[in-house]
Design a protein around this nucleic acid. Sequence first.
DNA 1: CGGTATCCTATGAGATACTG
DNA 2: CAGTATCTCATAGGATACCG
Lengths: 129, 129
Amino acid sequence: MPDTIAASHRLDISAPHRELLDQVLDKWSLQVLNELCEAPARFSELRRAIPAVTQKSLTATLRRLERNGIVDRIVLRTRPLAIEYRITPLGKTLRPPIDELLAWADTHMPAIERARVRFDEEAEGEDVT
Amino acid sequence: MPDTIAASHRLDISAPHRELLDQVLDKWSLQVLNELCEAPARFSELRRAIPAVTQKSLTATLRRLERNGIVDRIVLRTRPLAIEYRITPLGKTLRPPIDELLAWADTHMPAIERARVRFDEEAEGEDVT
DNA sequence: CGGTATCCTATGAGATACTG
DNA sequence: CAGTATCTCATAGGATACCG
């Protein structure tokens, strides 16, 4: 295995970091985490709570989160059998950083919208010069 | 215009938020931001600094960041002409949340590795039961 | 140097059908 | 209910060739 390329004084954004963030910050993870931080939920409850997700994607998301120790999959020996998903303590530690990120998005959204409009307008006039 | 669906006491992870984070936290943005937070850089410097990125992906990343007001593309009227990319003030505000996320990844990486091993081992023995 | 244009393939994700 | 298994299509991203 290759060690880190250089002892950079900057942030080291190594492959494992990126891979990890990709698994945790993907399209549906945030919503799922959001639901499970509230309360444990069953598969069908999650589907109802997040209508846009398909069965397949929800399954994939839950498996990924489970594999990374972010959620637990509990088999309830009720009748006829039920599965419950719960956030783990490790999963809970994700909240503060995620919240900060969402707060950033919230705060700067207007500035970003403006930047986009400007950019798109400039691109318009570009080739007519 | 529809207001937020429900006055949820939970985090609202709306489409614009997700879209924004997708644009900013994509595969290469973190590395690029990391470089540009240090100092302005030319296209070829970025390629050297991030060897794994292809020309196409780097171009796409820079355009996206530029459109969102995170970086500036400066045309230097030197000889024979040079392009410089710089982080914007808006771009700099991204650092704290990103740092927190990376710190989280760093802190909890060992626990996550362990969770993965456990999960994969359990999956092994599963069908041999 | 700093890209754009094109082709091609791998992956992600929706729809659908079926199972314990 | 809680999935798995396919099929299919759209997109992301790499390789390559070329341009101002």
